[in-house]
Simulated scan of single mutants.
Amino acid sequence: MPEQPAPGAAASIAALAATTSPGPHGLVSVAGGDGLAPARWPRGLLGAVPPVVALLLAEAAVRLGWIAPHLLPAPSDVLAALLQMLRDGQLSQHVLASSLRVAGGFALGAVLALLLGALVGLSGFAAALLTPSFQALRAIPSLAWVPLLLLWLGIDEASKVALIAIGAFFPVYMGVASGFRDVDRKLVEVARLRGLGRVALARRVLLPAALPAVLTGLRNGLSLAWMFMVAAELIAASRGLGYLLTDGRETGRADLVLAAIVLLALLGKLSDSLVATIEQRALHWRDSFGGTA
Rank of each mutant, 00 (worst) to 15 (best):
P2W: 09
E3L: 15
Q4T: 09
P5I: 10
P5N: 10
A6T: 13
G8D: 11
G8F: 13
A9R: 07
A9S: 09
A9E: 14
A11C: 06
A14G: 14
L16E: 14
T19C: 08
T20Y: 14
T20L: 15
S21N: 12
S21Y: 11
P22D: 03
G23M: 09
P24K: 07
H25M: 07
H25E: 15
H25G: 11
G33Y: 08
P42S: 14
R43T: 14
R43G: 09
R43D: 11
L45C: 02
L46P: 04
V49L: 15
P51G: 04
V52N: 01
A54Y: 06
L55F: 06
A58R: 00
R63A: 13
G65S: 13
W66I: 13
H70W: 08
V78L: 04
L79E: 01
L79A: 14
L82F: 08
L82W: 11
L83D: 09
Q84K: 07
M85I: 01
D88Q: 15
D88E: 14
D88P: 04
L96E: 03
S99L: 13
L100F: 07
G104S: 09
G104L: 15
G105V: 10
L108Y: 02
V111T: 12
L116G: 02
A118Q: 12
A118I: 06
V120S: 03
V120P: 02
V120R: 00
S123T: 10
G124S: 10
F125P: 01
A127C: 02
A128D: 14
A128L: 13
T131Y: 08
F134N: 02
F134R: 01
R138C: 00
I140T: 13
A144G: 06
W145Q: 00
W145G: 00
L151P: 00
G154S: 00
G154E: 00
I155H: 05
D156W: 03
D156T: 02
D156Y: 03
S159Q: 08
K160S: 07
V161S: 01
I164E: 01
I164R: 01
I164Y: 02
A165L: 04
I166K: 00
G167C: 05
F170G: 05
V172S: 03
Y173W: 12
Y173H: 04
S178G: 12
G179V: 11
G179Q: 06
R181W: 08
D182P: 04
D182N: 15
K186R: 11
K186Y: 06
L187T: 07
E189H: 09
R194N: 11
G195W: 04
G195M: 12
G197E: 05
G197D: 15
R198I: 03
V199Q: 05
A200H: 09
R203K: 10
V205K: 07
A209C: 05
A209D: 05
A209F: 01
L211E: 07
P212M: 08
S223Y: 05
L224S: 01
M227Y: 07
F228V: 15
M229G: 04
V230C: 00
A231W: 01
A231L: 11
A232N: 08
S238F: 08
G240R: 06
L241W: 08
L244W: 07
D247T: 12
R249T: 10
R253D: 14
A259Q: 04
A260P: 12
A260M: 09
L263G: 02
L264P: 05
A265V: 11
S271M: 14
S271H: 08
V275Q: 04
A276C: 13
T277Y: 12
I278P: 02
E279I: 12
L283C: 07
H284V: 15
T292Y: 03
A293L: 06
